[in-house]
């Protein structure tokens, strides 16, 4: 695929200035706008790369195929595609939630691309399994999928206005909203399934790049003991328990998150 096609497909935005590149990757249920409180703090000293996974946000949804995105590998390919087309090397990958694991996969598949990983609220496996407490039973995840289906039209409505930045031209927003609600449930549902049924526990030992794990408190999606498990499984990793609570510190506690990342990058 042509370089420009990837840029368009994944709605890639590059800004800021600096020799080091920070690649921010959104988690499930979000798009690149999830980083809007974080990136302003970095664009002065770093090159910042934002993107949407294929099928989300402002990406080209027609490029989505259920086959390619039937596992996290397809999403990891989005990352390597983007790095290749921007000719990026040695980037710092900052991934929220499931993107921590997607970035890890990309770093394993193509070792030259990613210099270090920053994982925010990672979980290698959401389901409980014998000795492993991922936090969820299969029926919990299935209930979540049902809930998403019932709520779908509602939150699609929230996603629409900003993504088009056309609040002064509501007719465009409505049109976009209709596309979104018409096309997305299957993509969103498949990403949810891929995310919540993924099991990356065995891959963790293959991560060779330095890794920072940023763990929040009272995170029911990726609880503290799961973050510790990730830390213990990745050879060259550092674990920080943040003051922030909840699964989305980039939204709820941007100051602390910025501070933690800056401190790590300074070292």
């Amino acid at each position: 695929m042509m370089e420009t096609d990837i840029i368009k497909r994944n709605n890639v935005r590059v800004f800021g200035s600096g020799e080091q590149t920070l690649l921010f990757a959104h988690g499930f249920g979000f798009d690149q706008r999830t980083w809007e409180r974080i990136t302003p703090a970095f664009q002065e000293n770093f090159t910042v790369v934002l993107f949407d996974y294929t099928g989300f946000g402002g990406s080209d949804k027609s490029a989505y195929t259920p086959d390619r995105y039937q596992s996290l590998d397809g999403y990891a390919e989005d990352i390597t595609d983007i790095c290749d087309s921007l000719q990026l090397q040695r980037v710092t990958f900052i991934g929220h939630s499931v993107s921590s694991m997607i970035g890890a996969l990309a770093s394993i598949r193509k070792p030259d691309l990613i210099d270090r990983l920053i994982m925010i609220g990672p979980s290698p496996c959401y389901l409980n399994d014998e000795d492993y407490n991922g936090g969820f039973e299969r029926q919990d995840v299935e209930a979540l999928l049902d809930m998403m289906e019932k709520n779908f039209k509602e939150w699609a409505r929230y996603l629409a206005p900003i993504s088009m930045k056309n609040e002064d031209r509501p007719q465009l927003t409505t049109a976009f909203e209709e596309t979104l609600t018409a096309n997305d449930p299957k993509i969103v549902r498949q990403f949810a399934e891929v995310t919540f049924f993924s099991d990356m526990r065995k891959e963790l030992a293959n991560i060779v790049v330095p890794t920072l794990i940023l763990q929040t408190r009272s995170d029911t999606i990726a609880p503290v003991h799961v973050g510790s498990f990730v830390h213990e499984s990745i050879p060259n990793s550092q674990f920080i328990l943040m003051e922030a609570t909840g699964h989305n510190p980039q939204i709820s506690h941007p100051e602390e998150l910025i501070d933690r990342i800056q401190t790590y990058l300074a070292n």
């Binding site: 049902d146 809930m147 709520n151 939150w155 929230y158 999606i221 699964h247 989305n248 939204i251 709820s252």
Partner: peptide
Amino acid sequence: VASKLYYQTFFTPIMASYKHVNEM
């Protein structure tokens, strides 16, 4: 459990962006 997952994934971000949530 499912609602907790849903709440964390969607409620918090939507409130942060829009200051309101309808019909969740």
